[in-house]
């Protein structure tokens, strides 16, 4: 119980910090906006083939905006050695991981909430698929990506070139999630007749999410050691 309580305090602290400094979320939203505008210039919204690009654009936004946030997540704790303050406090390392995960995930959801409707608007996209399935896919994909990303951000934070190291570590490990969610998003948005196939992708991503979340949870103790 203490594990969740301290994790919530930590997540609240990170989100309140973000509210004060507006460093991460603003950068993420500006990045997402730029991607959408650039893609809307590159592909003609009137053309039907453009619709096929949308699932890819959604995940380009989530992946790259997510990395912007993940990079800062643990590096911000190096100033004044505040990470030491957390490590000497009576909380498990898993609690620190959970707190950071919750904060990163919340910020990611906010970016998605702002950018995806904006993307649909700019591409003049008529949503004909299943909204609950679409929300489920975005949720599961973001969950897995942020769960693994938070763990690797903790690992990379001790390196001098952490901003380069994080994407290098993150992309190979999250590739199965990204393949799964892009495929599932494509089916849900453009071809609902193949829903069974989308459900199979969702099941794969869910299994991957659960396994990696538990593994990260168990291994974080070794990563956060000073």
């Amino acid at each position: 119980m203490n594990l969740f309580r301290t994790a919530l305090f930590l997540a609240k602290k990170d989100l309140y910090s973000e509210l004060k400094t507006k460093q991460i979320l603003t950068t993420q939203i500006i990045f997402a906006g730029l991607v959408i505008v650039v893609f809307s210039f590159a592909f003609d919204p009137a053309n039907n083939t453009t619709k096929a690009v949308i699932p890819g654009v959604i995940w380009v936004i989530i992946v790259f905006a997510g990395i912007l946030g993940l990079n800062r997540s643990f590096i911000s704790e190096q100033r004044n050695d505040t990470m030491q303050g957390l490590l000497v406090a009576p909380m498990e390392s898993a609690s620190i991981y959970l707190g950071k995960f919750l904060a990163n995930f919340t910020m990611m959801l906010i970016v998605e909430l702002v950018s995806i409707p904006f993307l649909f608007l700019l591409f003049d996209f008529k949503f004909l698929g299943s909204l609950p399935y679409f929300i489920l896919v975005v949720f599961l994909g973001s969950f897995g990506f942020i769960a693994i990303g938070t763990f690797l951000a903790a690992l990379a934070a001790n390196s001098k070139s952490s901003e380069m190291l994080l994407p290098l570590l993150l992309f190979p490990i999250t590739t199965p999630i990204l393949i799964g969610v892009v495929q599932a998003t494509r089916i849900i948005l453009t071809n609902m007749e193949k829903l069974a196939s989308a459900i199979a992708w969702i099941q794969l991503v869910t299994a991957y999410d659960v396994i990696f979340f538990v593994v990260c949870f168990l291994l974080i103790d070794y990563v956060l050691e000073v």
Binding site: R79, N80, D81, T82, Q84, P90, E92
Partner: peptide, 19 residues
């Protein structure tokens, strides 16, 4: 965890959040 509850640690750094 039990031991951390009774320890107060002050290193060289302040361990404070700047903002």
């Amino acid at each position: 965890i039990e031991i951390k509850k009774v320890i107060g640690y002050l290193p060289h750094s302040s361990l404070l959040y700047d903002h």
